[in-house]
């Protein structure tokens, strides 16, 4: 009996070590410890063993059973490990590059626009939008630009033929011509015509000038304008906004200054200069960055706001110019070529 058990264990040891799969394992397990298994058969012979030998035999069988159980568990663990190895495949080389696409990129103009909008949203400006095809009224008349102003000339502004019709660009007077807006100030007018004050909006968008394209001019470019209308808005408030914008954008040590200027739709009007450290390719102390002013009462009267009650300010700037300053880009045309080597630099 003892020998039989030893032989059985030895056989089990060699057979179990060859097992490759769980199916084989289950079959082998049945062969040894199943109802018809070899060990089970031996255990059944216990009845025939003389009573005085039973404890010794019982101990032997239990020992063998325990060892067989260990063998089985070991075999099962080996199979499990082999399965995992097969599932994993060979080890990776962590230094190989990913074959997947590189990440997408936001256009630098979008990045600058969104950064400005984030800064302005923090102080309560909501982002407004309006059509790029505009009317003479919204783009010029409502902004106090006289009919003979050079900016309105066909030399400087793109017009559409008299018969052109745009379904979703509303006209103020039937006779006026459609044009491509020359500034985003038209959005101010549309916003004011839509609802009562107070208003605090920022309107970024594409604008058009009839200009030759070169390193600093482009047939279309982007602007961003702020409009704030409320009671008792002052020049000091306007300056505070500009200081806040550029300190947010370029750091606390950034300074702005106002120079008197002229725009038809603001009074007083200013040009805004900026002085900041760490701007690439800038070798002047002050750089012109935009225009601003207090909304002219004529503009309020035109949109039906009582200019005795309401006051406000407006600020506008070119986004390409800002992006060029921030990133040190020296040619506006790069923004419109979409060379991936350019776009990826701002990821």
């Amino acid at each position: 009996m003892e020998q039989t058990l030893a032989a059985l264990l030895s056989k089990a040891h060699s057979e179990l070590s060859l097992l490759k799969s769980r199916v084989e394992f289950e079959a082998a397990k049945a062969r040894f410890v199943g109802p018809n298994g070899e060990l089970t058969a031996l255990m059944k012979q216990m009845g025939a063993v003389p009573k005085e030998q039973r404890p010794a035999m019982g101990r032997l069988i239990n020992e063998a059973k325990a060892r067989l159980q260990t063998e089985l568990e070991g075999a099962l663990a080996r199979i499990g490990e082999a399965e995992i190895t097969a599932q994993l495949g060979p080890a990776i080389d962590p230094t190989l590059p990913s074959p997947d696409r590189g990440p997408g990129t936001y256009h630098p103009l979008t990045q600058v626009r969104e950064e400005m909008c984030r800064i302005l949203r923090k102080v309560g400006f909501a982002v407004a939008d309006g059509p790029e095809v505009e009317t003479e009224y919204t783009c010029f008349d409502a902004l106090n630009t006289p009919a003979d102003h050079p900016a309105r000339d066909a030399q400087d502004t793109f017009y559409f033929p008299k018969q052109a019709r745009f379904g979703n660009v509303s006209k103020h007077t039937p006779g006026e011509r459609y044009l491509l807006r020359t500034h985003t100030s038209s959005v101010q007018i549309r916003t004011m015509l839509k609802g009562p004050p107070p208003i605090r909006i920022v309107s970024p968008g594409r604008v058009y000038r009839r200009d030759a394209t070169d390193a600093t001019h482009s047939a279309n470019f982007h602007q961003l304008e702020c409009l704030y209308v409320d009671r008792n808005v002052t020049v000091k408030d306007l300056k505070a906004l500009l200081d806040y914008i550029f300190a947010s954008l370029l750091g606390k040590d950034t300074k702005t200054r106002f120079r008197p200027h002229y725009f038809g739709y603001t009074e007083p009007s200013f040009e805004v200069d900026l002085s900041a450290r760490h701007l690439p390719k800038v070798n002047k102390e002050w750089i012109e960055i935009g225009g601003c002013g207090m909304v002219d009462p004529i503009v309020f009267d035109g949109v039906g706001y009582d200019s005795k009650v309401w006051t406000g300010y407006a600020f506008g700037m070119g986004l390409e110019r800002l992006a060029m300053l921030l990133f040190g880009i020296d040619d506006i045309r790069y923004f419109y070529q979409n060379d991936l080597r350019f776009l990826r630099q701002f990821a």
């Binding site: 309560g124 407004a128 020049v235 408030d237 505070a240 106002f258 120079r259 008197p260 009074e267």
Partner: peptide, 28 residues
């Protein structure tokens, strides 16, 4: 107002913080 400010000096506008009463407006 503009004439007086020009001669006062637009570089002398005092600095201030932005005050912004909340408006119930959302982006377009």
């Amino acid at each position: 107002v503009e004439e007086i400010l020009r001669l006062h000096g637009t570089d002398r506008i005092p600095s201030a913080v932005v005050t912004s009463p909340g408006l119930l407006a959302e982006d377009d």
